Computed example of a mutant assay.
Amino acid sequence: MKKQEILDAFMFRHACKEFDATKKIPKDDFSFILETGRLSPSSFGLEPWHFLVIQNQDLRETLVKAAWGGQKQFPTASHLVFVLTRKSHFMKYDSDYIDGFMVNVQGLPPEIVEMRKGFYEAFQAKDFKLLESERAMTDWAARQTYIPLANMMTSAAMIGVDSCPMEGFDRETMDALLASELGMDRDKFTLGYAVAFGYRKEAPMEKTRQEMEAVTTWYE
């Protein structure tokens, strides 16, 4: 039963292009969805994200001007979430943010912090070569933020809530708007994506996916 319920949720989920603006997600349900985002895993457990829940309609009208991919979703969604990515200099192995996170959030003793920073430095410098450019590090951090996106959309689908992930925006313009309208610190963050939640206005098209054999190779 549990397996089928999960598969049913994946079949239910689709990129909802327009929501029924008259229907609002109950507070407890949205708190549950957001909690599944907060509890999501990330590389080295460093959580390079911040969630902005945009409920003010006037603010949505301002932001949608820079979001060609959210013209129907921004105004009609019950809840609209912008997920910020922490920028490269905060994610570098020797940053004050990493030190503080390991001590204050993860509760690690000094010797373990130093050991883990050594592993983290090797990973960034050699394994993934993230120190070669700011773009490489920021893109790597952004990839971590897509884990809570998937978890939030799945948990929403499991309780009958629709969603739509969106990258259809001019990032430079949107970052400037978030800085001017909400005081986002552009030295710390850039917008990763937006995701809208609510209830579908119309039935979606039939889901299409490749067959398992087309996307899977087994070696035994």
Rank of each mutant, 00 (worst) to 15 (best):
S155C: 11
F101L: 12
E132Q: 11
P110M: 01
S43T: 05
W49I: 04
A157D: 05
E18L: 04
M11F: 09
M115N: 10
K3A: 14
D28E: 14
I159C: 12
V81N: 06
P48I: 03
D96A: 15
M152A: 10
L46W: 04
P204Y: 11
L149V: 08
T22V: 06
F30A: 02
L84R: 04
K3Q: 13
F32D: 05
D8H: 07
A125E: 02
E111M: 08
E134R: 01
T154Y: 12
I33Q: 11
T138H: 09
E167A: 15
V81W: 02
Q4S: 14
L178Y: 05
G192H: 01
T217A: 15
T76F: 08
F12P: 03
P75W: 13
P110K: 04
M102D: 08
I33R: 08
Y120D: 07
R143G: 09
I98R: 10
W140E: 03
I159V: 14
A67N: 12
M166Y: 11
W140Q: 09
G118N: 11
W49C: 03
G118F: 09
I54E: 01
R86C: 03
M205I: 06
F30R: 06
L34S: 07
I25S: 02
G192L: 03
D58G: 03
L63A: 01
D99E: 10
V195L: 14
M174C: 07
Q144K: 02
A141S: 15
D58F: 01
D28N: 11
Q210M: 12
T145D: 13
I98Q: 12
M212R: 15
S180E: 03
P204M: 08
D8R: 06
A136I: 02
E211P: 13
M158E: 04
E206G: 14
H79G: 01
W49H: 07
W49R: 04
R143W: 09
G70N: 08
E206K: 15
S88W: 10
I147Q: 07
I54L: 03
D8S: 11
T145H: 07
R200C: 12
Q71I: 12
G37C: 04
S78P: 11
Y120G: 08
S180G: 09
K188F: 01
T85F: 06
M174S: 07
G69M: 03
K2L: 15
K24A: 13
V53L: 03
